[in-house]
Each structure stands twice: as C-alpha cells, then as structure tokens.
C-alpha cells in the first residue's frame, strides 16, 4: 500500500466520522442530504459483499466493517433518531436518476458478467455520483455549515488521493482498472466547484455561501 492509498482511506474515514460526530453533537442533521447517505450505504453494501468470501488483510476487513457500520448508523440518525431536524423540503434530488443508469451501465460495461462483479461495478458507478443529492441540497439552500464543508472536503479528497494511488500503481506495477479510474475521475470532477469554494472561503474563516 502506498502513501496516497493510505491517505485516501484515512480521508474517507475522517469524512465519515466528521459527519457522524456533527449529527451526534449538534443533535441535528440539518443541511445533510439523507438521500446521499442512503446511496453511500448502498455503495458499501454492494461493494463489500466479498467481505466473508475474499479475505485480503485485517486492515481491509476492519475498514470495510467500519465503513458499512458508520454509513448505516448515519442513515439511522437522519431518518430515525434526528428525523425532526431532517431537511425534507430541500433534499429532493431524485435518486432513481442515479440508481437506474448506474445499474444499467453496470450490466453493460463490466469486467465479468457475474453477480458479484456486476454489483461491484454498480457500486463504483453509483459512488461516483452519490454526492450529487448533497451538492444539490447545498446549492438549493445556498450555504453549508463549516463542519459540513469539512466533511465534503475530506470526502472529495479521498477519491483524488485514490487517483494518485492508481497513477502510482500504474507506473510501479503496470496496474490499472479503467472502470475504477474513469469513475474516480468523474467523482473528483464533481467536487471541483466545491473545492474552489472551500479553499477560497472556508479556509479563510468564512462560511460557505453561494453567490446569489
């Protein structure tokens, strides 16, 4: 494992924990898209079905379990415990517009036409666009709490670091996977606008608000 891969995993973990803590400490999930969180729970579930059939390392297995557990806990906090604070009115992105094309594409473009492989491919495609309901919510309300911005920055950085990891693996091991690579590029591109706002505003101590 190279440093980019490790930092990517760490960044992903930090994002997930920031979100859980934010909801738990403020007793509120306002400004958070429950729909994006449902998509992430689906992503982890369909990607990590090999959890018990394909052992790689203790690190790998524990991270998978942590990611899955945290994503379900987040969905529970939003739709269960702190439901009263959930922003139903603004979180209106139609997730079937992401789920259906990802599923169709996974059937058409994959490495192997087998159930586990199609589900893995589906999770890669879905993850690349799963943040859209959250970005849509931020654009609809025109602002994001600073802690939500940190969450989005850590989550966006994770795939960017994975891209560097894949670049590294390509040159050192001749390893590449076009499905993961192209999806990873799309996923990172979707955050570009946000990265710009984060660096130009949030890091200078201002709240992230969109120009009217």
């Amino acid at each position: 494992m190279n440093v980019f891969r490790f930092l990517g995993d760490l960044s992903h973990l930090v994002a997930i924990v920031i979100l859980l803590l934010k909801i738990w400490k403020t007793r509120s999930c306002s400004g958070i898209s429950g729909r994006s969180q449902i998509l992430f729970a689906i992503v982890f579930t369909t990607r990590y079905l090999d959890l018990f059939s394909n052992f790689i390392s203790v690190y790998n297995t524990s991270m998978k379990i942590v990611y899955i557990t945290c994503s379900y806990a987040t969905v529970y906090l939003i739709y269960g415990k702190f439901k009263a604070t959930y922003d139903f009115n603004h979180d209106t992105f139609r997730i079937e517009f992401l789920l259906v094309p990802s599923a169709i594409l996974a059937f058409l473009v994959n490495h192997d036409f087998s159930p586990l492989e199609i589900l893995w491919t589906f999770s890669i495609y879905l993850e690349s666009v799963a943040i859209l309901p959250q970005l849509f919510l931020v654009s609809k309300t025109g602002e994001a709490e600073t802690i939500t911005s940190h969450y989005l920055f850590a989550l966006g950085s994770y795939r960017l670091l994975y891209l560097l990891n894949w670049l590294w693996r390509y040159f050192s091991q001749g390893f590449y996977d076009l499905i993961a690579l192209l999806s990873g590029i799309l996923q990172t591109v979707l955050y570009c606008d946000f990265f710009y706002l984060y660096i130009s505003k949030v890091l200078k101590g201002k709240k992230l608000s969109l120009p009217a």
Partner: peptide, 10 residues
C-alpha cells in the same frame, strides 16, 4: 494480465 480489479482496495 494487468487489467485486474483493484479488489484489494476499499
């Protein structure tokens, strides 16, 4: 064949 899935990744 180097076109393997990065299944060792997360």
């Amino acid at each position: 064949d180097n076109l393997i899935n990065p299944k060792d990744e997360l």
